[in-house]
């Protein structure tokens, strides 16, 4: 009976886990999310404005802290990619946001998640079950990066500035800036938003 049990168990183990395969490279985690206000008539518009800096969200701007910005040359690379996509969809850029139908606000942020493991000795000897006091925990972490692009309308039909299109690009950061990942994802945000095209 024991022999048969071991036999069954060995087959189960041989078959592998219930979640075979999965993410191998950092770019495998890249996703692009877009959403829009379907009551907004993009086709009848055609002029947009965009700041010449991409804000990096950290700290608290509402508390009066100074905003940080993306460093060069990454700032210009990303802005040029956004502008070229807007041009391809028929939009004309203006320097004065007061003349624009829509204003594009790009922003980035990173988010680091830390994992602490400090209790894994405990199974061996209860004396080690004290937690933090018994030495350094094992730590691992991962960081994700996000590029947010928002098109805001504040024309006559809106009392307050209103978000009519949002694109959120997110992926696991490798520690080195990879321009092709960012470029590809910006292009994808516009590719999956054909309703932005103007006449």
């Amino acid at each position: 009976m024991k022999k048969k049990f071991i036999f069954y168990l060995s087959i189960i183990i041989l078959l592998g886990s219930c979640h075979p395969g999965g993410i191998e490279y950092y770019e495998d985690t890249d996703v692009v999310y877009t959403n829009y206000d379907d009551s907004f008539d993009f086709q009848s518009k055609g002029v947009y404005a965009i700041p010449d800096k991409i804000v990096k969200l950290e700290g608290d701007l509402l508390e009066g802290e100074e905003p940080a910005f993306v460093k060069e040359p990454y700032n210009t690379q990303m802005l040029n990619q956004i502008k070229s996509n807007m041009t391809a969809l028929g939009w004309t850029k203006t320097e004065d946001p007061a003349d624009a139908d829509l204003v594009m606000f790009p922003a980035v942020w990173t988010n680091t998640t830390l994992y602490y493991y400090y209790d894994y000795w405990c199974w061996y000897y209860y004396y080690y079950c004290g937690g933090w006091g018994w030495g350094y925990p094992s730590v691992s972490s991962y960081t994700t990066g996000t590029l947010l692009m928002t098109l805001v309308a504040d024309g006559d039909e809106y009392i307050d500035p209103t978000r009519v299109w949002t694109a959120n690009i997110n992926g696991l950061l490798s520690g080195a800036y990879n321009s092709s990942r960012v470029t590809k994802s910006i292009d994808q945000a516009f590719t999956q938003s054909p309703y932005l095209k103007t006449n």
């Binding site: 890249d30 877009t34 959403n35």
Partner: peptide, 18 residues
Amino acid sequence: TYTQGTESLSGIQYRYQN
């Protein structure tokens, strides 16, 4: 790209079923 209503999401999916 996966679209539902006004929302679209692009990326690689890893699908498992037991």
